[in-house]
């Protein structure tokens, strides 16, 4: 089966986030960018399915300017077969991304789409579900286990109260949660090999999708800082403070 893995270029998860002085956005100048961690888990899961002989081809797609080819290369080094960059310099909403991906699904006809449950920049947690709705594919979100069985996939989902397992007809959309797997590191020979794998570039304008967002960011601010309080000497003082000062117990 063919697997489509959409990935996003996002701020590296180790980088400390700073807000621009004019409060227009988060400052990404000279910031280390990486493949969004949940997307990396999606790539890893696809590669494992290929290693098990279940997947035959893994196509990685990313929407963004030329810089996102770096993240596509990362995915190719991890074991994906070919890449597709949907070129745009606009900042798009999840809905527009989902519409573009829907067009890619129509073209590529994958049996499974695996993508991260959310990106660590916009924290939206929308694209996979939107794409599932637009393509008519069933969805298994926040997956911690993905089990392909013939023309169905069983997905164990991390939900607030514990775990839920659903069975979906293929083709289906799966979004990854943290515990699905632990992504491998790309080896040097695989990084070299990835340089020769093909990346196709298509302009976002060619997909016939309206690329304007109806959501405007008015301002971005740093969160209110919590001030540290006091150190208490012992348990007795702690309990006393909680009772008489904070009045929470």
């Amino acid at each position: 089966m063919k697997i489509l893995v959409p990935v996003k270029r996002a701020i590296d998860y180790n980088v400390k986030v700073r807000v621009k002085a004019d409060n227009s956005a988060v400052d990404l100048t000279n910031t280390k960018m990486s493949i969004n961690p949940f997307c990396e888990i999606a790539v890893e899961e696809a590669v494992r399915l290929k290693e098990k002989g279940i997947a035959s081809e893994i196509v990685v797609v990313s929407v963004g300017d030329k810089a996102c080819q770096e993240q596509i290369r990362t995915a190719l080094a991890l074991g994906a077969d070919r890449g597709l960059q949907i070129d745009t310099s606009d900042v798009l909403d999840s809905l527009q991304i989902a519409k573009l991906l829907t067009k890619v699904v129509e073209e590529e006809q994958p049996q499974l789409v695996i993508l991260g449950k959310q990106s660590i920049d916009s924290d939206n947690n929308q694209t996979g579900q939107m794409m599932a709705a637009l393509t008519g594919m069933p969805q298994g979100t926040f997956a911690s286990v993905v089990d392909i069985d013939g023309d169905k996939v069983k997905v164990t989902r991390e939900i607030d109260g514990g775990l839920q397992t659903v069975e979906l007809n293929l083709p289906a959309v799966v979004t990854t949660d943290l515990r699905l797997n632990e992504p491998r590191y790309a080896t040097l020979p695989n990084i070299m090999k990835a340089k020769r794998k093909p990346i196709d570039v298509k302009s976002a304008n060619d997909f016939g999708v309206t690329l304007t967002s109806n959501v405007k960011t008015l301002k971005v601010e740093a969160p209110a800082q919590r001030k540290g309080g006091i150190k208490v000497a012992d348990v007795a003082e702690l309990v006393e403070k909680l009772k008489t000062e904070a009045k929470v117990i």
Binding site: K16, D121, V220, P223
Partner: peptide
């Protein structure tokens, strides 16, 4: 956004 490291309106 950014895991609560920035607040967007």
């Amino acid at each position: 956004i950014y895991a609560g490291n920035a607040i967007a309106t």
